[in-house]
Amino acid sequence: MSLAGNLFHSSIGRKFLMALTGLILVGFVVGHLVGNLQIFQDPDHINGYAAFLHQMGPLLWVARIVLLISVGIHIWAATALALENKQARTGNGPATAKHWIQATLSSRFVRWTGYVVLAFVIYHLAQFTLGVAGSAQFKENLPRYVMAADYRVAGFPVIKAGAEVLDVHSMVILGFQNPIVSVFYIIAVGLLSFHLLHGIDSFFQTMGWRSAKWSGALRKLTLVFCLAYFLGNLAIPGSVLTGMKGLREGFRAPSTSRTARR
């Protein structure tokens, strides 16, 4: 069989595709979190960062397409493998309840956590990228933010002071002031961290880099990584929800100004 045939049709090939796309997606979620943690700095940072990303134009679309393909392959491979697994058992499964011997909890629920993460990603894009959910607070509908200082990437001023940019800072805080939204975010990223607990461990196994010699250390590193990832994500909606992080000074909600004008 050809390489593509091996990768897309064989058991190990599709597991490799899952591992590879999983790695891309882990890379993305980590970068995404690190970028978003700029919300704890001056509004210039997160707003400048968002404007900088949008300025990249075609590059941004390349990244989006790569991510979309990764998500597609990850879900396709998981579904194809899971259907085969069901088939391999159907009609001949143990009549007694499955007796788990040593499978981890995260591995047993990896499919279910995956479903929640998918639902979350769709909601997250609808809320903050497309502006479908909670559109009154969407960045396009908020007053523009004027940069107080330059936003620099690697020392280069990419967004100049005085530039009018979208107010991502206020959009995120307004969004998370809704407790239902915040709690859903916290649960979803919690489950994503739980998903990664099995996923990252499995990545090393599928690539053939895991062995008993260091699997204990790997498990601990994975646990620390997932916990750090969860706490980082918890910080944003958590601090808004508890009121530790409020709206920026000088922010005026558009709805009130619009009614005033009428």
Partner: peptide
């Protein structure tokens, strides 16, 4: 192995 209809490993090590 695949042709014989066995399932795929989900790294649960049972």
């Amino acid at each position: 192995m695949d042709a014989m209809g066995f399932g795929n490993c989900t790294n649960q090590y049972e």
